[in-house]
Design a binder for these strands. Structure first.
Lengths: 157, 157
DNA sequence: CTCGGGATGTTGAGGGTTCAACATCCACAG
DNA sequence: CTGTGGATGTTGAACCCTCAACATCCCGAG
């Protein structure tokens, strides 16, 4: 009954698995070394910096940074201790909380960004041809679309 | 000085980032649900099951399962508590430890494998064309090769 | 108006990973 | 032989994430 993987498929899967694990571990390690934060936190700072007023509702921030609400709560608490983010209560919705990037947070992001971009270039873009970069985008988009249609899709709770 | 990402590159990068995070989180979640173990532990069991005698030196197992020695130590300790792996001291090298898959561990792997393969098919292979699968392998291989050449390469300590 | 279901965000426990420090042991130069 | 540098594994602390439970609040049906 089980649709086992063929030898070719195994090879694809193991290459994909290995590359992903190692690439993202490497990026995370360099970011931790250069900016003292994990990649998930960097992502949060980026999304905040792109928002108007550098502020977002927690739930909107969770969606844009592909983070669970729980993870975001913990992360923002830590970033707040660090002085990089401030939490404010929301006027229109008493349940809401608004996360706002502080000047210190923005400065930290500006310091970290060049180093991180260099990491991404070295480990992702430089090794690939322009054609492969296009293929990678198409593949990623297809995977995301499939996941989105899945009945048991990505939990957003 | 910084080689910032172009708009196109940004799009590639964010798609890749998002797809990866969500796909692997989904696979991990389903494996946790179906087999009660994280994917890293599943990987360890697989590598052990493929080895002669279903046993491997810790360091060889660490390499094959793309795991740091520290992580492997913790993981094997936990798998040993669970009765799925046994540790034996190595005859030729008194520093060495050999991890051996128990019958219970093999049975657990046999039970988990079909469900996990189905996950992988649904979330990775089914959404991609045969052509894209070939491309994905080439891309992954290129990323791995670049990482391997890197002076600051994947830490294996 | 009000009540119940859904949404928002937080919390704490449990578990996994990383990092640095460490103990032990091999191997080889001298 | 004998040091000594490198390898092998382990450990504990710190940190991050997940999951389930929870408190709070919005909103629409009746």
């Amino acid at each position: 009954m089980t649709r086992w993987l063929s030898a070719d498929e195994q090879a694809v899967w193991r290459a994909f698995l290995g590359a992903n694990k190692l690439v993202f571990e490497q990026l995370d390690r360099e970011l931790q070394r250069d900016a003292k934060i994990p990649h998930a936190y960097y992502e949060i700072l980026v999304r905040l910096s792109e928002a108007p007023e550098r502020a977002l509702r927690m739930s909107a921030l969770a969606d844009r940074s592909q983070s669970s609400r729980s993870r975001l709560s913990h992360a923002v608490a830590r970033l707040e201790d660090q002085g990089w983010v401030k939490r404010e209560s929301c006027a229109e919705d008493k349940r809401g909380q608004i996360a706002r990037l502080t000047d210190e947070g923005f400065a930290a992001l500006e310091a970290a960004a060049p180093l991180h971009v260099e990491s991404v270039r070295r480990h992702v873009f430089d090794p690939l041809t322009a054609e492969q970069q296009r293929q990678l985008k198409a593949i990623s988009t297809a995977l995301l679309a499939a996941l989105h249609d899945d009945p048991d899709g990505p939990a957003r709770t």
